[in-house]
Design a protein around this nucleic acid. Sequence first.
DNA 1: CCAAGGATAGAACGATCGTTCGAGTTCGCG
DNA 2: CGCGAACTCGAACGATCGTTCTATCCTTGG
Lengths: 196, 196
Amino acid sequence: MVESPKGRDELVEVAVDLFAKNGFAGTSIRDIAAAVGRSVSNVYHYFENKEALWLAILEYSVKALPEKLHAALADKQDPLERLTALVRAHLEASVQHHRESKIFFIDEERLSPMGKRANRRVQKEVLEIYVGEIERLKAAGIVRTDETKIMAFNVLGVVNWHLRWFRPVGKLKEEQVFNEIIGFIMRAVREAPPGS
Amino acid sequence: MVESPKGRDELVEVAVDLFAKNGFAGTSIRDIAAAVGRSVSNVYHYFENKEALWLAILEYSVKALPEKLHAALADKQDPLERLTALVRAHLEASVQHHRESKIFFIDEERLSPMGKRANRRVQKEVLEIYVGEIERLKAAGIVRTDETKIMAFNVLGVVNWHLRWFRPVGKLKEEQVFNEIIGFIMRAVREAPPGS
DNA sequence: CCAAGGATAGAACGATCGTTCGAGTTCGCG
DNA sequence: CGCGAACTCGAACGATCGTTCTATCCTTGG
């Protein structure tokens, strides 16, 4: 179904794989060139340097995440429904672009200031979407904490952590896993019932 | 308060810093040697190779985590109290050994099979502690899910994710942050109240 | 059919990597 | 004091790193 890409795109495609597997410092230009069966200089024909390739990946796939999340919210009104849809869209995007998502949340201190900034910008954007939704829930009286940002971090922790353990090939059906995660989050955001 | 360590210990101490900041592939033996103001060969006097140094760090600090968690559980009976104590101990240990904890959950595929195994073993041990507690809660009728492992992953996600954003120097008091996180988790593990 | 420019390759650069070696220095203990 | 062990160092090895250069090939428009 995926038509095999050529030229520049094929490089990005393969680089995503290797960066996700070995990190930025752990992946050499030669690794990437060898994986596409082309020469080292060919990589430099398309990208100014190693970091430009990293940024191209961010451009290519990861930056689409905030848009997907916004799209999932577009037609929902009820705050609880909105958060559910947000988390579900986030989980689906993470599984669909598993390798890219892993890159997105790698903490690469070896990037240039520009590379770091690009990474942080995407992360911050996603965080703000979650904070916005939690504040909606608070306005609706469902969430009671004053620390909406901490709660957003906690939700993001659950969502992102599943990149570390979830494998689509496992015996559990994806849908069931998603429902467990969503249920966990939706219980957590509500204030504890008074009678307990 | 920390007496400055000598010889081998000083190397471990500094290596923890650099590995946590730059990852395994991103930290060179020369970096470490320079940071302690000694020679490269001196590092090799104490450690067979780079990975032995990594394993020494695991030995030195991270492997103590499961013991700390067990200790926090030792004198508690009530399942809810137990999970609260477990999470709190985990958070405290993570903050206290912030750099080591970051290393612990770095996904370093560049390690040898032996190094990977050591990392995974610690992670698995911690996971099993959480699964055990969640199954206690299930036996007590508080948790209702059948997927106790998924729930354990979710809890670990929240706990570990705070390494990514929490800074002890922030304006929020550590105690307050901990309480927010613990509250989040304790709400999430209970089944939703029937009337909602 | 030929010129131009994109695509590709191979060789080489200086830097840095993990690691080894041999030789000094210091230290503890008889 | 003497001697072996522990410690420390600088130099060097081969491998690999990111990057550059030059030269071909292939395609394509006039």
